[in-house]
Computed example of a mutant assay.
Amino acid sequence: MSAQRGRDLLLKLDGDGLGSFVAVAGLRARRIALNAGAVDITAADSAGRWRELLAGAGTRTASLSGSGLFRDAASDAAVRALFFDGAIRAWQVVIPEFGTLEGPFQVTALEYAGRHDGEVTYEMALESAGEVTFTAA
């Protein structure tokens, strides 16, 4: 994979739950973190007293965060409503020439900021709330 422009990463929301994803924000900075918890099964008879882990066990999570500008007032309202309702919706993260992450996420943080001589910006964080799939480009 060659170098990618950060601005090409897209965050899309399935706002109505019917499977039609719409880009919701112009993200200027983004971060995706995939994590897997380990389950330690080390015992007194483990070879050389080295730690042993149980394959396929543990909890997997995906975290997304970004900051920038909402695409329009409707996008801002949709994300804000999800935050205040504590609702979980399907989201897609499209990474050009790499693939798409898709799954249910909850908006866990939503911050607004602005300067007197500039636009209103936001920062938001999403946490996975179920199975996240990856489809290669």
Score class of each variant (00 low, 15 high):
S2N: 15
S2Y: 11
A3S: 09
L9H: 11
L11E: 12
D14L: 01
D14E: 08
G19V: 02
G19F: 00
G19I: 05
S20E: 08
V22G: 06
R28V: 14
A29K: 11
R30W: 15
L34P: 11
A36T: 09
V39R: 12
D40W: 10
I41P: 14
I41R: 10
T42R: 05
D45I: 07
A47Q: 14
G48P: 06
G48R: 06
R49G: 15
R49S: 15
E52G: 03
L53Y: 12
A55Q: 13
G56Y: 02
G56K: 07
G58L: 00
R60T: 11
R60C: 05
R60D: 06
T61K: 04
A62K: 03
L64M: 09
S65E: 13
S65I: 01
G68H: 01
G68P: 04
G68W: 04
L69P: 08
F70N: 01
R71A: 15
D72S: 01
D72Q: 01
D72K: 02
S75C: 13
A78N: 07
A81P: 09
L82G: 13
F84Q: 11
F84P: 01
D85H: 10
D85T: 12
G86R: 03
A87Q: 08
A87G: 12
I88G: 03
R89E: 04
A90V: 07
A90D: 15
Q92L: 04
V94Q: 10
V94T: 10
I95H: 04
P96F: 00
E97S: 10
F98G: 04
G99L: 00
G99W: 02
T100Y: 04
E102H: 04
G103A: 03
P104H: 07
Q106E: 12
V107L: 06
T108I: 03
E119V: 14
E119D: 10
V120G: 04
V120W: 00
T121R: 09
Y122G: 07
E123N: 11
M124S: 07
M124I: 14
A129Y: 03
G130D: 07
E131A: 08
T133F: 01
A136C: 09
A136I: 10
A137H: 09
A137C: 12
